[in-house]
Amino acid sequence: MGFCTMAKIVIRNLVHGPATRRYPAVPQRACPITRGHVTLDPAQCISCGLCMRRCPAQAIQVDKAEKVWEIDRFRCIACDACVEACPVKCLTMETTYIAPVTEQTVERHAITYVKPEKKKKPETGQAEG
């Protein structure tokens, strides 16, 4: 008969102590491939805009003319699609989550990549107006 069938588990819990993690005092559990948030290496980005096109959430905006890479963290779903799409591997999926915020802001990164040799920086002056 099943009275107090839970007793076994209760006693085990009492003996083994809490199974919970005292987050944020103790950091979150993470593994090498945990999808936390995307970061950009602005020195490598060639502003091709593939990440923008592949993003299922339309979180990324790349302005080729102004050389700006923008991400809206509220829209980003950390799916890794941009990282996979990037031809020069300038995007990285970090394992940590971004800190909670209360306002939706767009993160802007100026792209510092300079094309070696060949063509000059394409029409930077034009888009400024």
Binding site: A19, R29, C31, T34, R35, I77, C79, M93
Partner: peptide
């Protein structure tokens, strides 16, 4: 609590706890 151990396996293998992608 038991579910947590399954989520750990999912995270270790896919990078996501509930959305595997």
């Amino acid at each position: 609590q038991l579910r947590e151990s399954v989520l750990d396996v999912l995270e270790d293998t896919t990078g996501g706890r509930v959305i595997q992608g």
